[in-house]
Design a protein around this nucleic acid. Sequence first.
DNA 1: GGTGGTGCGTAAGCTCAGCTGATGCTCGAC
DNA 2: GTCGAGCATCAGCTGAGCTTACGCACCACC
Lengths: 296, 296
Amino acid sequence: MLDVRRLRLLCDLDLLGTIAAVARVNAYTPSAVSQQLSALEREAGVPLLERTGRRVTFTAANRVLVTHAATVLAALEQATAALASASDRLSGPLRIGAFPTAVRTLLPRALVSLGREHPALELRVTELDPVAVPRALRERQLDVGLVQDYDVAPAAPDADVDTTPLLEETVYLAVPARSGTTGLPAADDSAWITATPGTLCHTATIQVCRAAGFTPRTRHTADDFATVLALVAAGQGVSLVPELAVADAPPGVRLTALPHRRRTRIACRRGAASHPMVAACTAALRDSVAYSAGHV
Amino acid sequence: MLDVRRLRLLCDLDLLGTIAAVARVNAYTPSAVSQQLSALEREAGVPLLERTGRRVTFTAANRVLVTHAATVLAALEQATAALASASDRLSGPLRIGAFPTAVRTLLPRALVSLGREHPALELRVTELDPVAVPRALRERQLDVGLVQDYDVAPAAPDADVDTTPLLEETVYLAVPARSGTTGLPAADDSAWITATPGTLCHTATIQVCRAAGFTPRTRHTADDFATVLALVAAGQGVSLVPELAVADAPPGVRLTALPHRRRTRIACRRGAASHPMVAACTAALRDSVAYSAGHV
DNA sequence: GGTGGTGCGTAAGCTCAGCTGATGCTCGAC
DNA sequence: GTCGAGCATCAGCTGAGCTTACGCACCACC
């Protein structure tokens, strides 16, 4: 029988690329990982790894093994989920990753209700960009995360992550109230406030502007929408902001709804969606969204 | 992460009922199994076993765990199957279980072709009754087995075993040539030659006769159809024989086709059907059946 | 109601899988 | 050339997990 612990290391290697990285994620030394993978190769009876330069690459046989291994691990994840749901009481750590706006708006209410209903739960929140969520889930840094996509930048499907819808927002153009700019085309030669390159918000802004026929000139860079709106109010430029962020928009900002949508989804490791912790978290977040919607 | 080796012990326990039996099957001492299951219980965080009398029974939580564990093990089986099919050459042991008639008629040709195409395969044949095949597969005594059912005695579906059709035969009534008996109803007060109680053949004979409105009076008991037919030829009684067995019917036996069918299927552990060894064996058996059909 | 057989669990001890740490090799970047 | 990063191998140690031995509970059978 193939050793499942070794299969997991193999899957990690597929994701991370180097043995050293796998070792870091699993709190092992590279030596241990190397030995385990060698043992797996012996079990398999087929070469799995090839050394190319100072890195390792996968053989064709290994590619098919990795996909099957992922299925095994997902089944295992479902087993533990079923186990936890058989037990009535939730306990242990639940690590949630969310983007800053959600942490400020949606999460507090969800955390309070989760903590009230399941006092033994150790809730841990990490603030991180949606693009980093899938990786953090795979590397078991997170249990639940919020991911996003825009209609202009649809998310690539991910075989290792299950997602379920949470929220859909309209995107607004935020301009200084005293400026004459109203619509997106008119913002062509405005100064822009954009997020850090590489984040989803930055990509989405670029795409939205491209669809409108221009490339935004970035003057300021800010990831937190509160900061962004403060800059807009100060007349420092224009920016795109999602619905969630406009609740606490300062005076001096004029908002124009754009025909673009931002979708937020709840993500977890493949097979873990049925885990009661994940399910409870999903329910709490949905409640929080419903509450927010009722109070806008 | 739940230990998959322990999950397998748990599944075995579900099948076998006692820790001692699990230990026997896995070549462990009962103590080792007991310790491993205790460890699994600790991992799960939920009681899994209850001592009732001098045996153990499963908790509700354990029932759901066992079904999930079976899925995990099937996925693992598929992974090894995929691995083996990636490697072009088949090797290692392949244990086949079949009923005596098949061992004499179908298997030899299949074994020869398998041995020719895959010289590194270690073929091992075990003669056993179809009813024993599922259990032998589950306990990993066999890799492939032939199972059967009659229209009068349909097989119960088995979640741990995958099957695929191989052969469908008509059932004959065999009577001494010089006797006046021709049809089934007329065999009402004949002496019968039946198989050992508990075997599928025995059950099927009883059911067929019951459908005809009588219960057969057993005079002789024999499981091998060559023996059965010899007894019939010797005027010792009547019996039911399937198509496969009538090829070598001795003179002195009169055969009457009955409207009953016997279906033979190839069985393997759940998830292993795609294993190239199993696939090769299936193909060889099908070829053998086709050859036999062409030479009747 | 002993008494033996069977099944399960615990304690003690031993073995080997699998970890760490040291070392050496091979790349690629600067 | 030189340095750093990545991988493999070796030696050595630790602990998971096995066996053996023992005790207890239950059931059947005289």
